[in-house]
Nucleic acid binder design. Sequence first.
DNA 1: TCCAATGTAACATG
DNA 2: GTTACATTGGA
Length: 275
Amino acid sequence: MIEMPEASTIARQMNETLTGKIFQHFSRGPLTHKFLWLNKPAEEFDAFVAGRQVTGAKSYGRSIFLYIDETHLNLFAELGGRILYHAQGATLPAKYHLRWDFTDDTSLTYSLQMWGFVGLLSKTDLSAPPFTDTGIPPLSDEFTFERFNQLLEEYPEKKAKGIKGFMVTSKYVFGIGNGYLQDILYRAKIHPARKIPSLSLEERSQLFSSIQGSMAEAIRLNGREDERDLFDYPGGYRRLMSSQTMGNPCPTCGTTIQKLAYLGGACYLCPTCQV
DNA sequence: TCCAATGTAACATG
DNA sequence: GTTACATTGGA
């Protein structure tokens, strides 16, 4: 899935590569998928974007905004898969779900994995629900330790669910999914099922630092090694806790890394370090 | 053959 | 309070 480091990398590359290009055509690819959500029929996407210009791109949490003229944007949200740029003359992938062609004979394709929302919105649409329901992206000015602590207290299910429930719910911290969460909790030495009221101030501080540190490092490395950037290059961030490292010794204490099914999606953790 | 993962529905339990 | 399930391309 695309989490904040991937969204950041792809948006930066889109901004550098696509800005100034004129859309020629939007279309669906040869693959279909029930969990691909467009907010309008593909024909409306096509009719709207044709002849309009890309004016930039940026990321927000795990979302990507691709700006169209001064008034609209193409929103990529809650999505998995690959968004790829194809230079003039490049062979398009055989399988993809969506495609944007530009007038200079370059194009963009999206191959979905799991699910994804692609929306054609006006900038004002972004300032109304459901697009305002997202939480605060890590590394943003708003994301201070004080605010983080406040969000922990505001989480309505703080007594019922473990810290994992809070962390992967986009309404609070926006940008982290199950993938990076494993490393974040490992670095903070916190078990995914720990209840929020039981977290000491020091543990909250460790968690906050771990979020900031993990996100900064992953952004610096252009995302995870098992995800791809706009040009189909893998990122350089190798997760410490994942299906790939399960069964290996914990780098800190040597205990075997375990897998645990909890609140949807797998947790990988060191049962000794994370309590 | 199994894995990835979000949100929600359905289930089990005390 | 926890798990199953929707899905499907890729390892």
